[in-house]
Simulated assay, not measured.
Amino acid sequence: MPDLLIKNAQLPNHKNLVNISINDAYIESIDDISEKPEHDDAPKAIYDAKGYFVCAGFYESHIHLDKACILDRCTIEQGDLNEAVEETGKAKKDFTEVDVFNRASRVIEMAIKKGTVGLRTFVETDSKTEMRAFNAIKKARDTYAFAIDIEICAFAQTGLTNDLHTYE
C-alpha cells in the first residue's frame, strides 16, 4: 500500500496524465492513467494534481539567511557593493539570536511554500555577530528540518579571532 498517490499528474516525456505512487519517500511507480486508471492498493493519502505539471523541488545553493530582511535597516543612496557592505556591517551590530531566527524563519517559510526542498546558507561569524547568527541559523535549520534540508556554511567574513573558536 503506497503512502501517497498523486493522481492525474503531468510529467515531461509522458503523453498522458500519470498516477505517481510514493512509498517511504520514494517513487514506487509511475503509471499512465489510460493504461491503469486505478491503483491496486488503497493509498494512505491521495492528492489530485488535476492535470498540473509535477516536478522535483527546488534547491537554493547560495543564500545568506543571517542577513535576510534587513533592507529597512539600511540607507541606500549609491546602490553599489561598497555601500551594501557598509550598511550591512552597521545593521549586524544589532543582530540578536531571536532577531536572526525570526528573519531567517520568514525566508525559510517563503521558500518552502514555493517548493524549495533544500538550501545552502552562508552565515557570517565575526566580531559584530560573534556566534549569535550561527546559533540562530542552527535553530532555524532544526525547526524546519521536517520540510527542508538546510546546509550551513560558516563564513568568516573578517577572519577568525581567538574568541571565535567553537563551531559545531
Rank of each mutant, 00 (worst) to 15 (best):
I22P: 01
I27V: 10
K36L: 12
I22V: 11
S34E: 13
N13E: 10
H39D: 03
E28M: 03
N13Q: 11
E28T: 09
I22G: 00
I22K: 02
E38V: 04
K36W: 05
D32V: 07
A25C: 09
V18A: 14
S34D: 04
S21N: 00
V18M: 06
H14F: 09
I30F: 05
Y26M: 08
H39F: 07
N23Q: 06
A25F: 07
L17T: 13
N16E: 14
I30A: 01
Y47R: 12
D31L: 11
H14M: 10
H39V: 13
H39T: 06
D24G: 00
D41F: 13
S34I: 15
D41C: 04
A25N: 10
A45C: 14
E35W: 04
N23F: 03
D31N: 11
D31Q: 11
Y26T: 06
D32Y: 04
I20F: 05
A25S: 12
Y47D: 08
I20R: 05
D24H: 06
N23A: 09
N16W: 11
L17Q: 09
K15A: 06
D31I: 10
I33H: 01
I46K: 08
I30W: 03
I22S: 04
N13I: 09
E38A: 06
I46M: 11
D48A: 11
I27F: 02
E35N: 11
I33L: 05
D31R: 07
N19I: 10
Y26F: 07
D40M: 06
A42F: 14
D41V: 13
K15H: 09
H14Y: 14
I20T: 00
D41M: 09
P43N: 15
I33T: 04
S29T: 03
N23V: 08
P43E: 13
E35C: 10
I46F: 09
E35M: 09
D31M: 06
V18F: 01
D24A: 07
I20V: 08
S29R: 05
